[in-house]
């Protein structure tokens, strides 16, 4: 099996064990620029581990991951960190905003990590906050905003570097359906506008419905429904 032509991020035959638990057992994945792919499956099926491997957060025990023609497995931790800083964006379910920083500072953080000056970073951050309709919260701290607002701030932060891949792990898990859908709409709109690929881990069908196609993970094995059909 070779990655499908034109894919931005592809993985083959991933294996990863945490102690005796086999989290991934030969999973595969591929995504094209501008595509939104949902990773679905029951709890404990290995969805999040797949995302962590694809994002270079966790190295797989075996298998290959290629991003834009480069093999992730061969990279050092520092190189993978740099890749995450500049090319990837992340949205998690919760616990991701730094409670001491204001919202705009949180959004500006990834740019600052890349060495952008504070002023410039915060200006860019504010633009993204406007797009996600949370620019009114810029001087508030995460503790002072609602869950849905916080998640939008997190999406703005994930997009501020204009990443080529956005990883979202249950981004609406802590939100009610109205807020969840609004976040999904904004997220997918923003991603499409920058032609970013979105890897969306979710167990909710209605969230997955914002994707272009889905991959089902079960017992550490993946199934690409589009290619299977």
């Amino acid at each position: 099996m070779t990655p499908p032509p034109g894919s931005l991020l592809a993985a083959e035959d991933l294996r990863k064990a945490y102690g005796p638990t086999l989290a991934l057992d030969g999973a595969a994945f591929s995504i094209h620029p501008g595509e939104v792919v949902a990773v679905m499956g029951p709890s404990g099926s290995g969805k999040s581990t797949l995302l962590h491997c694809l994002a270079g957060i966790v190295p797989p025990d075996s298998g290959s991951i290629t991003y834009a023609g480069r093999e992730l497995a061969g990279m050092s931790d520092a190189e993978r960190s740099a890749l995450r800083r500049s090319e990837f964006g992340f949205v998690f379910q919760f616990g991701q905003l730094v409670p001491e920083l204001t919202c705009v500072e949180n959004v500006a953080l990834p740019l600052r990590l890349n060495g952008t000056s504070r002023k410039q970073a915060e200006r860019a951050a504010l633009t993204w906050m406007e797009r996600l309709e949370v620019d009114g919260l810029k001087d508030k701290r995460p503790g002072e905003v609602s869950g849905g607002q916080g998640q939008r701030v997190a999406v703005a932060r994930a997009l501020v570097t204009e990443p080529r891949v956005l990883f979202a792990d249950e981004p609406t898990g802590a939100l009610d359906s109205l807020n969840g859908e609004r976040v999904m709409e904004l997220l997918t709109d923003a991603a499409r506008s920058t032609n970013a690929a979105v890897v969306l881990v979710t167990h909710e069908a209605r969230v997955a419905a914002y994707s272009d196609r889905e991959i089902v993970v079960r017992d550490g094995k993946s199934r690409d429904m589009e290619r299977a059909v």
């Binding site: 069908a205 997955a208 419905a209 272009d212 089902v216 429904m225 589009e226 299977a228 059909v229």
Partner: peptide, 16 residues
């Protein structure tokens, strides 16, 4: 089941 889910999701995508 997987095929059916895929079909359901396809409908859901259209509706969404």
């Amino acid at each position: 089941l997987d095929t059916q889910r895929s079909e359901h999701l396809r409908s859901m995508r259209i509706l969404t």
